[in-house]
Design a protein around this nucleic acid. Structure first.
Lengths: 155, 155
DNA sequence: GGGTCGATGATATAGTGTTTCACCCGACTG
DNA sequence: CAGTCGGGTGAAACACTATATCATCGACCC
């Protein structure tokens, strides 16, 4: 997902954000976050589990799912529904606990699998308007756009 | 999803659309479509399988998944990613084969589970713009908005 | 010490989707 | 007519994703 330096910075921000909220970024949770951030693309829970097992042989599905629940809850990672996979949030810490996260959208490349998060205000606004027109109170929106990324298109 | 009359009309439109394209809406596929349209909310593949079994005791997961693949391919049903469930398309037949379908969005009620399809041009446009700004060639977008529907909000 | 609460360990199970091989049948071809 | 080729279906097994449940541990509080 990012190079080591960016990853390190994201981890530090996550620690700060958790500290601010009184949330416990335990070693396990931190390690799972590190694995998610270190992946080159959205990563599945069982792939995380495999990697986790190398340092924690006893790890089982609930181990990783509980950590992911915590990270999702605090906006440190997002789930990509179309891929059943998880990705680090590109601006973690800017939301509040129990907030379901700032509006965001994903661009998923069909060719290389790279997935990029954007936060486009016009999209969020159009969605809120459309929902309101239907008398619907929008709480949260999943926006996942599939296509070809700039790098792959250039090839 | 709809009352019997609406369902019947949708089935006839589906038959027409398939005939136009040379696609075979076989009895099995038609029956699965009927089940999806008859459900009150998005329905899961295994729930479909259960209902299918009453008339086709030999049905197995691939039976329903193959039918769903066909229906998805031809834009007769959509998948709601957040629910791992399927819903009839509200304007089936307006797309082309191997087209991945007209732009559409879902409004999912957290309270009653009802899911409504809308086709908001402003949302589709904002998404296309946002993707383009990132140098991304958008092919298809999943937009699923969770919240409270008008009827539940009124209660 | 006893009580409580959140985090983790460990096992089992539920839910969702795919692979694989076989069979049938209609169409096209020599 | 035999051959064969393709799409659709039947059937069994499997892979992947996620949750339920109960036990344990340690920190904190009284």
């Amino acid at each position: 997902m990012a190079e080591a330096a960016t990853r390190e910075k994201a981890l530090q921000e996550a620690e700060l954000a958790c500290a601010r909220r009184g949330a416990q970024l335990t070693p396990l949770r931190r390690q799972v976050l590190e694995l998610v951030l270190g992946a080159e693309a959205p990563i599945g829970a069982y792939a995380l589990l495999d990697r986790l097992k190398s340092s924690r042989p006893g790890a089982a599905p609930p181990t990783v799912y509980r950590a992911l629940d915590f990270l999702l809850e605090h906006g440190l990672v997002h789930k990509v529904e179309r891929l059943n996979a998880y990705i680090g949030c590109s601006d973690a810490g800017h939301g509040h606990a129990h907030d379901h996260g700032h509006p965001h959208q994903f661009l998923i490349c069909r060719r290389c699998g790279a997935t990029m998060e954007i936060a486009d205000h016009a999209v969020a606004h159009a969605i809120a308007e459309a929902a309101a027109r239907a008398g619907f109170v929008a709480v949260e929106a999943t926006v996942e756009i599939e296509g070809i990324c700039a790098r792959c298109a250039a090839t």
